[in-house]
Design a binder for these strands. Structure first.
Lengths: 193, 193
DNA sequence: AACTTAGGCCAACGCGTGTTGACAGTCCAG
DNA sequence: CTGGACTGTCAACACGCGTTGGCCTAAGTT
């Protein structure tokens, strides 16, 4: 410890370095995935020595875990009107995805890493399924409806932010909301077909 | 060459080995992605020496290219009625995905490899967009409509075959067709919202 | 001023990888 | 029966990786 009195919140001199590492890690993981984002490359981006990464985050897995700590914050969401749930959700995800690159990183890594896939599944289980239960007509179908919504949102994210299909990148925000909003709305609230 | 007369189609003794390697490669790439699917592991599965892989396929990239040669065959598709296009497409993709693992392999690798992502994009450009142009109301919007269809289908594939979300795996074939069919139908044929 | 401690760099280790070339067994045409 | 091409094995190479421990410097405490 730095001070004589134990003060856990004391700002360390190394906090800036820690943050720099984390930012570089997020960027690399989002751009390259887990294997190709080497600790050496991340350290080079952060202009520090690779061994510092180990000192602060233990190992590569620890660094990744620290770099992608996501929370879509679905439980706190409120909707103006029941008919706008789908469109509001699409807008919410769209901003979420474009403001922090953790989501892209998690998707890239999740494609080949079971632990990362598990983390995404937690979001589905703890946030999307409860939301489907909240707004949907039949609670026992909430899991299926939530899964369809997840596949819709993640499908767009995949083609737009991961694979970067030009036709998907070219879509405007409101255009996406107009097309995908009704889809989510139907998956969540329409009677079982 | 083996014979005196040049015969390109002559069955070589090594054809069986070639096929074994390719099958093992497909399986490994689909299960592990590009980096984690090592040549040594593939060779072990095929019960041959790693150097054989190099002899027959040049290098790892060549092996991958040979292992995932996909063609959804959309241009040849016919539809009983215009209202059934969406549902027919969903059924088509579902069987395609469950009968050969090339698609899963290509998705896993495409998440971190630009070349693989490009290969998927070719399918969109050469097959899905033309189909959208064929059945849609406005040709100049074909790219956007096709992109939405791609994101729908790939989203399902992602959550069901790559990330393996239980809620998505649990969905039955006809259940998926019932939910996703109308979505594709709308993306392809509905007037611009 | 002397001492302690945290922050940072450097060189190295062991390992698994893709890839290569030399060597041995096997088939088949002449 | 014999020569040459084909199929397969083995051992090794060079490289980049994650990870480690020792050393130096600068800051902060007493």
């Amino acid at each position: 410890m730095t001070g004589t009195t134990e003060n856990p919140q004391a700002a360390r001199r190394s906090d800036a370095t820690r943050a720099t590492i984390l930012a570089a890690a997020r960027e690399r993981f989002a751009a390259d995935g887990y294997e190709k984002a080497t600790i050496r490359a991340i350290a080079r981006d952060a202009r520090i020595d690779p061994s510092m990464v180990m000192r602060y985050y233990g190992n590569k897995a620890g660094l990744f875990a620290a770099a992608v700590a996501i929370d879509p914050g679905l439980p706190g969401m409120t909707f103006d009107s029941p008919e706008e749930i789908g469109r509001t959700l699409v807008r919410h995800f769209l901003t979420l995805w474009e403001e922090n690159e953790e989501f892209t990183a998690l998707m890239r890594v999740g494609a080949t890493d079971t632990a990362a896939a598990e983390r995404m599944q937690v979001v589905l289980r703890e946030q999307l399924i409860p939301l489907a239960r909240r707004v949907g007509p039949d609670p026992e179908q909430a899991a299926a409806r939530a899964a369809l919504c997840a596949s819709t949102v993640l499908g767009l994210a995949l083609t737009r932010y991961v694979l970067r299909f030009p036709a998907s990148v070219a879509l405007g925000h409101e255009e996406i909301v107009d097309w995908l909003g009704p889809t989510l709305q139907r998956y969540l609230t329409a009677p079982t077909p």
